[in-house]
Simulated scan of single mutants.
Amino acid sequence: MKTVVFNGKEYAKRIENEVAQKVRDLKNDFDITPKLVSILVGKNVSSVLYTKLKKQAAQRVGVKFKIKKFNSNTKASEIMKYITQNNLDDKTHGIMVQLPLPANLAQSTKHIVQSIAENKDVDGLREDRGFVHPTVKAILSALDIAVFSGKEKIVVVGSKGMVGSKLIKNYEAVGVDKNTKNLEKITKSADILISCTGVPNLIKKNMVKEGVLIIDVGAPKGDVDKGTYKKAKFVTPVPGGIGPVGISYLLENLAQAAYNQAIIHTS
């Protein structure tokens, strides 16, 4: 059986080209350039890396990308105050918080995210979000390419995380975590296995069945051991799979947010 390996970088390029055109249209029609404020708390290596990648993508499509850095010991109230200031700024069209936050702010994550105005929550983190989480959009795009019929059994490993919880909430799927009893038995029953735990090489080849569709959302290293690919008919690799597509969809959400806000201001 030949394994189809999803080329996320090529797919992301197509999305970026579409976003770049929307950005040009926004400039021509409304004389605005979309602006995204990304909040980075602490010096988590993965968070710093992904913020850098998002800024690079933003430059490619022509949007403004501001990084606001806070020390890891910053109080939640200070971060929320900054978010409120940008909620009221007409020149800021999107606000996001790079997760995970430092341990001392973990319990405040929900409150911080909920302080982002709904129309500027381009990362789709709010519970009453107006935008679909970019990573979820990327996963669904990959499944469409893999000819997802909707009848397959989906198992999400990491179902309590930010991405996993949204998949479980909105789609019929079995949710498990890395410490779930009989994890191997459950993952082996999946037609589609989505893993988003952040635990490198958690999923071994003995944990999946032949012909499975594997969506690896691990970061910065894959959740799925590459030896597992041989048993899959479709796989999203790490790096170069879901990651770049998710970033392109973040920028797509930003362009849409800017358009929505422009329409309101001109009506």
Rank of each mutant, 00 (worst) to 15 (best):
A190M: 04
S195E: 03
N104A: 00
G124R: 03
I192K: 05
H111L: 08
S108E: 15
A190N: 04
I67P: 04
Y82C: 06
T135M: 14
T135E: 13
R126M: 05
A76F: 10
K75M: 12
S46V: 04
V63F: 13
I95C: 02
Y171M: 07
K66L: 12
K81G: 15
K230M: 12
V48Y: 14
G42K: 02
V61R: 03
K35F: 04
G218F: 06
A57M: 01
R129A: 15
G218M: 09
K169L: 01
Q56N: 13
I203N: 01
V147E: 13
Y50D: 00
K221P: 05
G211P: 07
S108A: 12
P102T: 01
V5A: 08
A219T: 14
L101T: 01
I95M: 00
S108T: 04
D25M: 11
V245H: 10
T74R: 10
I145S: 11
N28E: 15
Q56E: 15
N260I: 06
I112M: 05
L36G: 06
Q98W: 07
G62F: 11
S38P: 06
G8N: 00
K13R: 13
K181P: 06
R14G: 05
Y249S: 11
T236M: 08
T135R: 09
L193Y: 09
S77H: 10
K185V: 08
T51E: 13
Q114L: 07
F70K: 01
K188L: 05
H93V: 02
M1L: 13
G218W: 09
K178E: 15
V155T: 05
I263E: 08
A257H: 10
G130D: 06
A106N: 09
G42H: 00
E184R: 13
Y50E: 06
L167D: 09
S77G: 09
K2M: 12
A58S: 14
